[in-house]
Amino acid sequence: MGSLLFNVFALFTLIAAVGVVVNKNAVNAAMFLLLSLVGMAGLFVLLDAPLLAFVLLLVYAGAVVALFLFIIMLLDLKAENRRVVAPTALAGGVLVIFGFSGSLFKILQGFAPGKSLFPPLPTTVEDVKRVGMLLFQEYNLPLQIMATLLLVATVGVIVLSKRELR
């Protein structure tokens, strides 16, 4: 059961990711990104991290993809659809994907601990409680730095979006 679900979600994620890369239309690429993120959330659930799956869906599928679509429609990129890919870029891309996958296979072949199954969990996961406790106790300072980062990003976006930059 778990193996079947893993295969389905992994294939879903990877095929949607390929769709992001090969799609000529930016709107379709954003939709494939959304599908890829949904598959990724499924993988997170299979890894017993339902909280992160939910956060991923809320933040990425809810906010980031919507922002992408908003900007694509704001800029109206329809006229730029019919560009051909440069042969050097295509050769580089193929080289990267094959070289990277080949070395990945080789490394994972030699990575013995990863071949064992995941250890079973004794009880149900209470990851909201655990993550919350860690976040507000051990990682309190990084959390506040992250909050400051979000504030800075908000102000920065407002400054960047003003009509004339000085």
Binding site: L14, A17, V18, V20, V21, R83, V85, A89, L90, G92, G93, V94, V96, I97, F100, S101, L104
Partner: peptide
């Protein structure tokens, strides 16, 4: 790898 290829190939 797919994401990296996209960064290289797309314009």
């Amino acid at each position: 790898a797919i994401g990296f290829t996209g960064v290289l190939v797309r314009r």
